[in-house]
């Protein structure tokens, strides 16, 4: 069988990248600019979106305490996912020093997650939130909001000319930034395939990649994505090893 190393070391790369590039910004950090409904946005290779005009940093689907959520049901997954995700989040917050942090839902993997968050990790989030606003958008995994963490919990947010919600709306897509679907895309060149999480936008709406290290991906071709985008205009901004790669939907397969 000819070799096809199509799986990547996503977590190792992201942790390394976070450590290496926290001090860098903009193109130096490998980010790529996009426009959503007339609002300028920066797609960062660590998986966050920065809105310079509003000074807001957006992350989605952190799925914190996913390991613990499984442990509660008798599957003792490694308890290191939360610290790994928070380390990457700390790096990207250090990079942009945003006025506001928006976490787009599924912040915790289950309803109990935020109440049972270990103290040292809670302190870490507290430190990150100091001196800035923090908005927790409620997701389907954590509809009840957060417990004992900085910031406020809401179902939906209108801010800086955009609407932020967890699940993309089938009817009101204009100017929407959403998560929930964990978009990823597969690129083929010659006989090699690379599949990576991505930001997906057609200029009207933008879907955020999942930020949590134990969150999987869903291909842009999946039926759950149908009807969300104008595919002619759709661009996937893929999270590469150390930069964003922007590829038109039509060109993904070469």
């Amino acid at each position: 069988m000819p070799f096809a190393p199509w799986k990547d070391r996503r977590l190792m790369h992201r942790l390394g990248l976070a450590a290496r590039t926290a001090a860098l910004t903009g193109r130096e950090a490998g980010s790529e600019e996009a426009v959503v409904h007339g609002v300028a946005a920066v797609c960062d290779p660590l998986g966050a979106l920065y809105l310079p005009d509003a000074g807001a940093l957006v992350v989605s689907d952190l799925h914190l305490e996913k390991g613990a959520a499984f442990a509660r049901r008798g599957m003792m997954l490694p308890p290191y996912d939360t610290i790994a995700t928070l380390n990457i989040l700390a790096a990207v917050i250090a990079r942009y020093d945003p006025r506001t942090v928006i976490s787009l839902g599924d912040n915790f993997h289950d309803r109990k997650g935020s109440a049972h968050l270990p103290d040292d990790l809670r302190a870490l989030v507290g430190a990150m939130g100091r001196g800035r606003d923090w908005i927790w958008i409620n997701g389907n995994h954590d509809p009840d909001g957060t417990t004992d963490l900085p910031g406020t919990s809401v179902d939906e947010l209108l801010y800086g000319g955009l609407v932020f919600r967890h699940e993309p709306s089938l009817t009101f897509g204009k100017g929407e930034v959403a998560g929930h679907l964990h978009p990823s895309a597969t690129v083929r060149r010659r006989e090699k395939y690379v599949r990576r999480p991505c930001f997906a936008t057609d200029g009207l709406r933008l879907l955020m990649p999942a930020f949590g290290v134990l969150a999987g991906g869903l291909d842009l071709n999946h039926k759950a994505m149908h009807g969300l985008f104008d595919r002619q205009a759709l661009v996937a901004h893929l999270l590469g090893r150390d930069r964003i790669y922007s590829v038109r939907y039509a060109n993904l397969l070469g």
Binding site: K7, R9, R10, M12, G67, G216, L218
Partner: peptide
Amino acid sequence: RQVTVSTDLIYDVLRSHE
């Protein structure tokens, strides 16, 4: 969707931390 968890990701987390 996403009810199960990918063992590939668990493997990565475990390798990086323990």
